[in-house]
Amino acid sequence: MTDQLNKYLFADQLTRAQTVELSSAWQTGLNHQSYPDSVRDLLGELTAAAVLLAGNLKLDGSLILQAQGDGPIALMVVECSSDFTVRATVSLREGATMPTEGNLQNLLNTYDNGKFIVVLEPKSGSDLQPYQGIVPLEGDTLAEVLENYMKHSEQLDTKIFLAANGEKANGLLLQRLPGTGGHIEGTDAPEEPSWDRAQQLATTIKQDELLALPAAELIHRLFWQEDLMLLEPTPLAWHCPCTRERVSEMLAMLGREEIESILSEQEKIDVSCNFCGKPYQFDPVDCAQLFIAKSDQLNASDTLH
């Protein structure tokens, strides 16, 4: 099954591994968007990373990853909720020249002012306070930026492998867990920690393999000699809460005069969701209905009072 998060625990309980596969969910997210390939792939990597990091959290709310840049990409944002629905978006800097071979540094950190931000946003009404961590965009890849963040902000040794294209957004995470190490049965000699072995084996993986191989096959190829415990898989889905009703409310807030001014210059109003790019169209009749509905609501409120 694709579109899921898989979790594994090594026998000595010193290492955990996670894989994420996003295919139909990722394609849903791209359905109404048109990004340059390098931008799309970078956003896919960040989306896979958000799922991997959210998989280790006990939070009723959302994990939000943001990369703010001074290059052609002004902002990338991915949100993964505690029910493992995701959404993602990119804001491109107007007038910026897109590099032929786009990468993290020349797309986001052209003048070394880029920032990487991790936000933990509890659900409304929670007693928990939001958390925000900010680090520089140091590293040649998003995986390196994330590894640096986990090492210095969370004190966790982590290895992350990410790959994305127009069809898939996949990733692998290895994380060292607190412990003292195991022993080889029948001897007093300490066993080589699984963390050391896992790191060495994982460095052999290539990006095309990460995209081409199903998660189970990837894990088997890398760790076939290991005794792994597979935990319950978590299904993933793309979800954007935009609706025509919400867009209507936003347009109504502009006011009748502003809407009529826009319609005097064009036959209809086209609005696209910032996150999923889904288009919404409002002709003059639709726009008139916005204010009829608003007037009816106000009259109903006055009647109640």
Rank of each mutant, 00 (worst) to 15 (best):
E167F: 00
I134N: 10
K168R: 14
N148L: 11
V118T: 10
N165T: 10
I184S: 09
I184T: 13
T158F: 04
T89M: 15
L156V: 12
A164K: 00
G171E: 04
E185I: 14
V118N: 02
N109L: 09
G133D: 12
L137H: 05
L107Q: 01
L156R: 12
E101G: 01
N170G: 06
Y131V: 15
L104S: 05
V90P: 01
G125Q: 06
Y131A: 15
V119D: 08
G95E: 06
E144F: 04
Q155H: 12
G179H: 07
S91C: 06
F116L: 03
L108T: 05
N109E: 05
G181H: 01
N113D: 13
I117H: 03
G171W: 01
L142S: 00
L137A: 08
T89K: 13
V145Q: 04
P99A: 15
K151P: 02
L162Q: 03
L137Y: 00
L92Q: 14
N109G: 13
T100G: 01
L156T: 06
T89R: 14
P122H: 05
L172S: 04
E185F: 09
N103V: 09
P99D: 08
T141S: 15
G171K: 02
T110E: 15
M150H: 02
L107I: 05
D140F: 07
V90W: 02
H152M: 12
D127I: 11
Q132I: 13
N165S: 06
A143E: 05
N106A: 06
L173Y: 04
T180G: 11
I160Q: 00
E185V: 13
Q129T: 11
H183M: 12
E101S: 09
T110S: 12
L173W: 01
L92A: 08
